[in-house]
Design a protein around this nucleic acid. Structure first.
Length: 601
DNA sequence: TTAGGGTTAG
């Protein structure tokens, strides 16, 4: 027990008989020293002995005392025990309980429960109540719940308070389907501070509405409200999502110029942005010069190296991290295993998978099993992957099964792929990607009738394939292309360029991989369909708009197809351009006819 | 005696 508590305890014993007021004071001091359940239980017995359990001051203190989860539960259940006089409930008491639960990771629903109880007992909420309650709603992320609390805010007329408004924006911006409501609250605010802007930008960034996030940041600058380090973290995460390296670099110089406080979180966001936007060396440099690295900093660089196929460096960095005394967590193991996966380090990956639990006490989750399956599949060990999935102690999810199916498709195990996919569709008949996989398998089998049927089923059920799209950033503008896109105002020049590229590539020896076109059309049309893939459109656009010799960077939403991969190699050679492609999984650096992934992806 | 926004993976 700490010195204050000892003093308080001795005072408590001395004063029990003399005066209740002093006992109360001592009791409060004792409570102050409580940071775990056993101490709290001890103090509870004193409270009962002294008859202080009806004292609202003590009751409140008791409830708000501990950060120990069990203690919060214990304290809040005390509120509803027979010893407790409910007439003494007040707003502050409920606020403390709600705050305690809102701050936890897993008991946020309890915060809402207590808010409802508060209303049931006729205790009025005040302007402090709603930020707590809304924060809990934000953590739960269920839109209807947040909406009902919003209705309460209006009923009790706290909707003019900027703190409440900001938390409303945050709550809607954290709930699925709530982003428009967030924007509505945001637009209707009479005054906005940096928290309002950050909450809205953060909401866009959280749900992948990254261009909206960056647009809003531009508006923020015009509004005259000064962005701070928290705003910048969200803006950077939007850049990371888009792969917008130029905007990211601009943000970095903005941070320098505006002297934005470079918190550890902001440095981490910068490292992550550079790593995922294709400049992993810059990320490494920032990382090396950084003091106060956290596990997030290490994870970002390890992950970045993994995406660039620099698996051995990622492994070395992981070892360095362990050597530096940083305990690895489950997230860093995902990066490490995916580094092994992307670089074909199968044995190393297996080794780490075994020792993560044994040596570091990190229990593998579904994602780690997913990495292992991915690793085996990439290495062409489809049957081993299948067996691995069957032996897993936890049930495989659809993502893992789809990994296996794709590998079946790529490595000619079509029958097995068909079997798994049919089973998967039986379990989840409304997931469109299962149908896409099955239809691809039938195309590879040349079963065109079956393939057509699948497409018909999809149409009937209103399901659509996610279209492949490619983004490119030129002069701080972001352009997006989909296959066969003609929406761009320079599309005629782009298509002329495509024809030229096709001719030059053929001359250099490129043979289109027409088996990638999973349509029942003749070979010439297949070539045409390949030529209109979104990445080729983006590259053609870049060749048109940038001076010779400058590197081209593009970002794909799906994995790059093998024809585009082979074509890009030829383009890099024919046009003497370095081309950096970020696809859904990793980076490909094309230079002089070769790709950094060594055709391993 | 209490209030709002941020980072890694999936």
């Amino acid at each position: 027990m700490n010195p204050i508590a000892v003093r308080a305890k001795s005072r408590l014993h001395c004063t029990i008989v003399f005066n209740k007021r002093a006992a109360e004071q001592s009791c409060l001091a004792l409570l102050q020293s409580c940071d775990n359940l056993p101490k709290l239980t001890q103090v509870h017995s004193h409270i009962l002995k002294l008859g202080l359990h009806n004292n609202p001051l003590v009751l409140t203190k008791f409830t708000s005392t501990s950060s120990d989860l069990n203690a919060i539960d214990y304290a809040s259940s005390f509120m509803f025990s027979p010893e407790c006089d409910t007439r003494l409930y007040d707003t502050f008491l409920f606020n403390t309980v709600i705050r305690a639960y809102a701050q936890t990771n897993h008991l946020k629903t309890k915060a809402i429960e207590f808010y409802n109880l508060m209303l049931e007992y006729g205790v009025f909420p005040n302007k402090f109540t709603y930020p707590f309650v809304l924060k809990a709603c934000a953590g739960i992320g269920v839109l209807n719940l947040g909406k009902s609390v919003h209705a309460s805010v209006l009923k009790f007329q706290f909707d003019n308070d900027i703190h409440v408004q900001n938390t409303l924006v945050h709550m809607y911006g954290s709930s699925k389907g709530g982003i428009e409501c967030a924007r509505k609250v945001f637009d209707e605010m009479s005054e906005r501070d940096s928290v309002s802007w950050s909450s809205m930008i953060g909401g866009y960034a959280r749900f992948g509405l990254s261009t909206d996030a960056i647009d809003l940041f531009r508006k923020m600058q015009m509004s005259g409200v000064c962005p701070d380090e928290i705003t910048m973290v969200s803006v950077l995460s939007a850049c990371t999502d888009l792969g917008a390296l130029d905007v990211g670099k601009w943000i970095e110089s903005f941070i320098e110029k505006q002297r934005v406080n470079k918190s550890v979180e902001l440095r981490n966001a910068l490292i992550d942005m550079f790593a995922k936007c294709g400049d992993v060396d810059r990320a490494l440099k920032l990382f090396r010069n950084m003091s106060g690295r956290t596990i997030v900093s290490w994870t970002s660089v390890i992950d970045g190296l993994a995406m660039h196929g620099r698996g051995l460096e990622a492994v070395a960095l992981f070892e360095e991290m362990v050597g530096a005394g940083v305990a690895p967590d489950d997230v860093v193991f995902i990066g490490l295993l995916s580094a092994c996966s992307h670089s074909g380090l199968v044995d190393k990956g297996k080794e780490y998978f075994d020792l993560m639990k044994r040596d570091f006490g990190v229990v593998p989750k579904i994602e780690h099993y997913g990495c292992m399956v991915d690793m085996l599949c990439r290495a062409g060990l489809v049957k081993e992957a299948f067996e691995f999935v069957q032996k897993m102690p936890i049930q495989a999810n659809a993502i893992i099964w789809r990994t296996v199916i794709s590998a079946c498709c790529a490595h000619g195990e079509l029958k097995l792929g068909e079997r798994i996919t049919k089973w998967l569709i039986g379990n989840d008949p409304m997931h469109e990607s299962n149908y896409v996989l099955l239809s691809n398998i039938y195309a590879k089998m040349f079963h065109w009738e079956k393939k057509t049927k699948i497409r018909e089923v999809m149409d009937k059920r209103g399901m659509k394939k996610i279209p492949g799209s490619t983004m490119i950033e030129l002069d701080n503008e972001i352009y997006e292309f989909v296959a066969g896109d003609k929406s761009h105002n320079q599309y005629k020049e782009i298509y002329e360029m495509l024809d030229e590229m096709g001719r030059k590539m053929k001359k250099a020896g490129h043979v289109p991989t027409t088996s990638e076109v999973l349509l029942d059309i003749d070979e010439e049309d297949k070539e045409d369909a390949l030529n209109r893939h979104s990445e080729k459109l983006a590259i053609a656009f870049a060749l048109l708009k940038t001076p010779p010799g400058t590197p081209i960077r593009i970002v794909k939403n799906l994995r790059v197809c093998s024809d585009c991969h082979s074509a890009t190699k030829f383009i890099s050679k024919v046009y003497n351009r370095e081309i950096v492609v970020r696809d859904r999984n990793r980076f490909h650096h094309f230079k002089n006819g070769f790709c950094s992934c060594r055709d391993f992806w």
